[in-house]
């Protein structure tokens, strides 16, 4: 299926959901308030989905993103609550928060490098390597916290998750920045080109002179870094960190990526599709939430949307194939 038609299928679904939810909820759904709250909720899942997406493009998967995010969050939380008075490091504790974020991102990148090394140099399958690191990293997070919540961050940290810039929530700005950077990496750099190549045909990619191992390593490094960024948004919104936050996000990130047109076999998918898919998922969940529908029904509905989109794609593909044959 051509990229244009895939994008338009998603756009049609998006408009359909928008119209349906507006009809069902009336002006409540179209209010500024609702859009603002959607903009606060989407970024966590969004950034994590970007972290998942880039590995799926190489026909891999990263099951450890949530565990990585939680470990990074706990490191950041431990530094921010280590007893150093935040006021001494600048207004609202900016200095302390910066140090904490740098440390957290460093740890998450390190986990990414570990994943990449296991997959690229030990030749482990991505599912198994990241399943192993997922269990181990979340274990380390539990050991560090003994299962407790760490809470109470400096003011500067809370601004990241709850602040506004001219009415636009800070988290959505962070998400847009992350998505744009990912888009540039994938569409306009040699690395992005090679990521798509590996996903389509690793052998051909290797024979055309690409160092597959280095590309895989860098892919998982970026995935780990993005998990860390997601963690910054997540813990500042909750004003706390814990070893098992957001575990239900893991499979949702796969769902969002696939819905956005990322092929599970690798090689296809764009950031723009993923962003549309995320908006669709968020509108369904916010709309149903306004109607007072249970969260769990929303989860079931997301599953149905995923299967529906996959079936439609399959049927379109088959139709086009047939037309091509005759």
């Amino acid at each position: 299926m051509s990229k244009a038609s895939e994008f338009s299928v998603l756009l049609l679904v998006l408009i359909g959901v928008l119209v349906l939810m507006s009809l069902l909820n009336g002006s409540n759904f179209l209010s500024l308030n609702n859009f603002q709250s959607m903009a606060f909720q989407m970024p966590e899942l969004g950034i994590l989905s970007l972290a998942m997406m880039i590995t799926m493009l190489t026909s891999g998967i990263n099951l450890s993103i949530i565990a990585t995010a939680n470990l990074a969050g706990i490191i950041m939380a431990m530094i921010m609550t280590s007893g150093i008075a935040p006021e001494t490091t600048g207004p609202g504790g900016v200095g302390l928060v910066l140090i904490a974020i740098i440390a957290g991102l460093f740890v998450s990148t390190l986990v990414g490098v570990l994943n990449g090394a296991l997959i690229a140099f030990v030749d482990m399958s991505p599912i198994l390597a990241t399943l192993g690191t997922m269990i181990m990293v979340s274990g380390i997070a539990i050991v560090l916290t003994k299962g407790y919540v760490i809470s109470g961050f400096p003011v500067a940290m809370q601004v990241i998750g709850n602040g506004n810039v001219g009415g636009i929530p800070v988290p959505i700005l962070i998400f847009l920045a992350c998505a744009s950077i990912m888009g540039v990496i994938l569409q306009h750099t040699p690395l992005g080109m090679r990521i798509y190549l590996i996903g389509s045909n690793p052998v051909a990619c290797h024979y055309s002179g690409v160092n597959n191992r280095s590309v895989i390593l860098r892919t998982y490094l970026i995935s780990g870094l993005y998990s860390g960024i997601a963690s910054v948004v997540m813990i500042s919104r909750f004003n706390s960190a814990k070893a098992d936050y957001g575990e239900s996000y893991l499979l949702l990130t796969v769902l969002a990526s696939v819905l956005g047109g990322v092929s599970a076999a690798g090689g296809f998918g764009r950031v723009s599709g993923l962003v549309l898919a995320l908006i669709i998922l968020q509108m369904i969940s916010s709309g149903l939430n306004l109607m007072g529908v249970s969260n769990f029904l929303t989860i079931a509905l997301w599953g149905m949307v995923l299967i529906f989109v996959m079936v439609v794609k399959y049927l379109i593909e088959r139709y086009q194939e047939r037309r091509y044959m005759t």
Binding site: V254, F296, L297, W302, G303, L306, I307, M310, V311
Partner: peptide, 22 residues
């Protein structure tokens, strides 16, 4: 529909679990 098993079962897991919990 030739949908990869991991995607299908992630979707059906959400459907089965969601509906039962409701």
């Amino acid at each position: 529909f030739r949908i990869p098993s991991i995607i299908t079962t992630i979707a059906t897991m959400n459907i089965y679990y969601g509906i039962l919990t409701v």
